[in-house]
Each structure stands twice: as structure tokens, then as C-alpha cells.
Design a protein around this nucleic acid. Sequence first.
DNA 1: TGAATAGTGTCTTTCAGACAATATGCC
DNA 2: GGCATATTGTCTGAAAGACACTATTCA
Lengths: 219, 219
Amino acid sequence: MSTANYPHPAVTVDVLVFSLINNELKIALVRRDIEPFKGIWAIPGGFVKETETLETAAKRELKEEAGIKEVFLEQLYTFGDPKRDPRERVITVAYYALTPSYKLQLRADTDVSEAKWFGINKLPELAFDHRVIVNYAIKRLRAKLEYTGIAHAFLPDEFRLSELQAVYEAVLNKKLDKRNFRKHIETMNILESTKLFDTEGAHRPARLYRVRQKTMITL
Amino acid sequence: MSTANYPHPAVTVDVLVFSLINNELKIALVRRDIEPFKGIWAIPGGFVKETETLETAAKRELKEEAGIKEVFLEQLYTFGDPKRDPRERVITVAYYALTPSYKLQLRADTDVSEAKWFGINKLPELAFDHRVIVNYAIKRLRAKLEYTGIAHAFLPDEFRLSELQAVYEAVLNKKLDKRNFRKHIETMNILESTKLFDTEGAHRPARLYRVRQKTMITL
DNA sequence: TGAATAGTGTCTTTCAGACAATATGCC
DNA sequence: GGCATATTGTCTGAAAGACACTATTCA
């Protein structure tokens, strides 16, 4: 049996880039410049090249789209409904990335007229089945936040605990008690305090923390 | 831009069927009857047809392979290393299924000379990157068992708590305390007791339980 | 009555969740 | 001193984990 007898669909990777901007969870979208769905916002992505890994393809997209290095990147799910793309069958492997906003600069890429951040509660109409994909990603992100320590992926290497709390609050979309939050973080034991303080503002300076090890748990 | 300019890899689904046989966690494997890896054991799978969903393809494989209906089936991960298949690029979307052993009858399918259950600690050499896939699935299965209630997917509709405990012990590969286990199940609140008893054997009969609702949590 | 499995309770520790007062630095 | 944020502890309830005895059926 040769594999040549079987259908060969197109395969893309889509990358959902999440970041925290003004204490709001946002996602990077691009406006399509071509049909189908011309003028409609979409998750950035592109075709997987012959010789590259899926993850490599995702990283390439990430770089083309936002010039990023070294961010949390994880495979999300593969969407393969035969009719999800009206042109031909396109199976897409979705990845999601978490990054501090200062690390990146959105830029419009090929086939795209514009790139922009959208608060996840203010999403425009999306192309293809991208709304489903975004919802799925948000669900996963929230679950992941609760049982791992990825929140720091949105922050610089050194950060205040109040910043970390703001990440949780934005992602989970609810207020947290400061004392209980700090106890929880203590229990998780993935942070260590530095000797540095953030002395911004007319108030008591905050101690800075960092991640104890680079433990990027990927289940 | 047309999608025709881009590479179109072959796409398969592989289905890891897990079951509990003699209180041992086993996985169904098939022996390949053709090159490459002729004679080597592999995860059952096949090419995704033009018009079918990925999940439909997985269900079809499941049926062809084991004549099953209605089992727990979930997408696992997509493996896309360009060199994972020596013939041409083949991207595979892996699914895993959990089923009671009485529900299924393994049978050799096309391109396969034999189908057999293997204890997960006694796996033979596997074709392609299937060893990596199996390891990944076991990891996911264990994690899922701890924070959801899927253990019952290995059992008939009505079962003894001691059977359920045996599932946990086999999957997690460790002994559990009977009282603590029952308290834990109680807490999860996904089972309800029936008025039935299992009167097998020369000993006190065991009450039978069933799942409260069909809550198949799929994250 | 012996063999085999079912069924059950207490204590300790850990963590989640509710809740408010003091500390520090800048202006 | 006033403002803004940082930092800290106690109580209660829920669940995990350690641990051993009684109950029921059949042969």
C-alpha cells in the first residue's frame, strides 16, 4: 500500500497569541486581505512547510507575526472538519502562545492587511471556525492556569506578586483575595523571591519574584 | 493565494485503545503486514478520508479494529515530525479510547496480520514514533484519571466499587487504601448506588454503582 | 466455622476561603 | 500627614492520607 492513494489535505498551523495588556487578556488577530473571508478577522496561521515540524511551523508563524523568541508555546488541538475551509480540505493544528506584551510587536504579514489585539470579551466576527478555536483555547488556558504555574508566562523574568495576581484575575475573570492568593502561590512552590524591589510610584516598593526553575510543564 | 501551492501531506488517525484485562492496563496493537516496519507492532490507524471528520475517522478505525460502539474517545495530540514516516510526510492525529474489554473483539484489518493486547509494561518494539505516542497517552490517561471521573469508562454500566478501585490501581500503578478511595469517590459525586448486588463468589455480595449522568468531560 | 470480599470511622495534616489591620515609601 | 500599594495571620470547613475492625455470604 502506498500512501499516494489517499487524500492529501492541506495542513496549516494557527497560533493563538495571548497577552495581558492593561490588565486585560487579549489575543492577536489579523485581518484577512484575500478571499475567503476577505476583510474578516482571523487567527494568524499558515501552511506547514514540507520539511518543518509542526512546532517549528508554529514558531515561524509566531516570529513572522510578532517577532517573538522564547515564549510559552503549546499544541492546543487539531481541527479537521472537512468543510471548515470552503476552498478545499484544510486541517489545522492549533497552538497557543503566552507572552508578555513588551516582548512583541504585531505586524501584518502576507495575505493580511492589519494585525491587532482584541480583548477576549470584545472579539469581532471571526473567519472559518476560528471562534470555536478561540473558545477552546480560553477554556484550556483557564484550566491550565489553575493546575500549573504558567501565569508567569505573561510577565517579565522578575515581577511583583500583585502583577501575577492581576494575570490570574484577568484570565479567570474574577477577583481574588490577596492573602489567599499569596498563600496559594507559596504552596505551589514555583517562585523564589529576589533581593530586588520595584520602586515605581509613590508607595511602598514591592519585592520582585522570579520562577524557581524553567519548569515548562507540558502535558 | 491558493492553497494548491502548498505541500499536502498525508494525514492519518491513530487510535490507542486501552482496556483493563485481568486487572492489567492493556493496549491494542496490530502487527504490520507491509513495509515499512513489516512484522513490527504498531498502533492501529489509517488515512483520513476526504469527507470525514477526524473524530469520525477515529471512530471508523475503532470499529474496523474492534467493532466498538459508544466508547470514551478523545483526541490526544498531533504528531508531525517530517521524518516520522520514511515513505513520505505523514501527519498523524492520535486519539485514545477507553473501553471495557467485554465490549470488543480485536480483529486484524487491512495491511495487518494480527491484532493483540499488550500490557503497558510489556510492550514490544513499536513502529514509527509509536512508542512516543503510547508514552504520551499513558501520561495523559493518568492525569485525566486523577482530575476527572473517566475510570468507569473501563467498566460495564453497573459495577462494584472494588472494580473501580482496581481500575485506578492498574492505571496509576499503585495500591490505594480502600476507605480513602471510597471517600474520594463519594466526594467526586459522579456515581450513584443502585439497588443491585453482585452475588458472585463465596463472600458478601457487593453493591453495584452506576454513573450519575453521562458527563463526558472533554477539555 | 473458615474463606473471601464488602463495608465502615477517627485522627491528623493540608489547603481553600472568608476576613482587616499595619508597613513603607513618595509627595 | 496623606496617598497608594505591600505585606501579613487567624479561623473554619473540606479533603487527603494513615490506619483496623466488623459484616455477609457461601462452601
